[in-house]
Amino acid sequence: MGTPSEQPLIVGGKRLDGRAMDELRPITITAGVLNRANGSAYLTWGRNKVMAAVYGPKEVFPKHETDPYKAVVRCRYLMAPFSTDDHGRSGPNRRSREISMVIKEAFANVVVAEVYPKTAIEVYIEILESHGSTRVAGLTAAAVALANAGIPMRDLPIGVSIGKIDGQVAVDMQKEEDNFGQADMPLAIKPTTGEIVLLQMDGKMTRSEFEQALDMAYAKVDEIHELQVAALKEYFDRAAVMPQEE
């Protein structure tokens, strides 16, 4: 959420890119795109392009961060300098460190970390092109990458964002809606149980709007989850016929 919009974000019942209020942008997911990572996924979500890679379980460095009872889940979310309209600075910043932390905590609730004590599971999320709601796109891609790496998980979490634009609740915020809308709420949900593992909110929504937003998010869970499962299935079918080049 940024400054209020000068131009309307909803024209004739449709949003700027012609979507309905409860319509997602087109999503594609490809699993297993990187050869050197244990697991990886490439996701496009509207104009967002996200690459996620998972390494591990592996030895923990620095050693003092080792947990003798379970694996340490680590996450790095980074936006490439060329991912935005203005060329950004490379490397982590305050925003990316916060997002890394919330995504790490979401996955720490999902990964069965007790199976691999004394190890680290590292999740890297690189935003190659950003157009709003990149943290949920990154989380959705990272979940596929984790499953692709064979990391034991209790669920395959999905991310989806909800917001308020021109006084109406809408699903899947794109860049202009995020910047000029009234509220933005990224959510991550475990599809099989419906538990929420990530929830942030920027802006203002009334209680009834918040509840409406949650309902809209839950209505989209299966749609996104099915895409994740299809990507994993497609990967294992593809891996069977195509020799992997080293």
């Binding site: 244990n38 697991g39 379980p57 069965v112 199976v115 691999y116 499953a147 692709n148 790496a149 064979g150 990391i151 034991p152 998980m153 209790r154 099989t192 994993l232 294992f236």
Partner: peptide, 23 residues
């Protein structure tokens, strides 16, 4: 419940994970 991606045979109750580290 399954924790990893794998092939499950409901008749024999056999579950074969597709990837995973050595334990």
């Amino acid at each position: 419940y399954a924790a990893v991606v794998g092939m499950f045979d409901p008749e024999q109750g056999r579950f074969m994970p597709i990837k995973g580290s050595y334990l």
